[in-house]
Amino acid sequence: MKARLDRETIAMRVAREFKDGDFVNLGIGIPTLASNYIPEGRTVIFHTENGALGFGPIAVEEKDQDIDLINAGGQFVTPLPGMSFFDSAISFAMIRGGHVDITVLGAMQVSEKGDLANWMFPERGIGNIGGAMDLAVGAKKVIVAMEHNDKNGKYKIAKRCTYPLTAKECVNLIVTDLAVMEVTPKGLLLKEIAPGWTPQEVQTCTEPRLILSPELKEIEL
């Protein structure tokens, strides 16, 4: 088996999408890790659904942990100058109203049209929608960060999603442990691949047909 990128490296690649001054909302898991890799010289302001903007990194030390300063994943975060707080209605007004530049979400499945399924495994019989539907519909750019295939090696990038949808045609960019793909009207455009992998190998791990970018290159960090 060839080596795939680890979660930290996926997060590092995602963080390269953040531009100076962007307002960014990170989902739970790999997306949250992206906050550790903001490119030097750029200021990124983080938003969290539970009502804060402009907070700092995860509070690791117990003495810095404050139950009144958490992110939407329930993790403790730290204060930063310029931070603000607001209620959930305002928080989601920001999201749905198109004021958040980028959201990075995990996914169970993404279709070639950019449909996203990330809230429920049908076999469990119940799941959590949480803020994912609003983020998928409202953010200006939706990036999915995930492993290319599931634990059993099955397709997560599919012709169509078989799990319950979070939103239709909402994903702009998919960053995985094998590749970076842009969702285009013609299909998925393969733009970058992991070191040591060929486009054909990535294609065999992907259900829909990939369009090879003329500028296809190795993933750059």
Binding site: S88, A89, S91, F92, R96, I129, G131, M133, D134, G138
Partner: peptide, 21 residues
């Protein structure tokens, strides 16, 4: 819920906030 003792209406978080507002 699995034992069918309670009902659930699942609402996206932003829609829940907006419905309450």
């Amino acid at each position: 819920y699995i034992a069918r003792e309670v009902e659930l209406e699942m609402v996206p978080q932003g829609t829940l906030a907006e419905r309450i507002r």
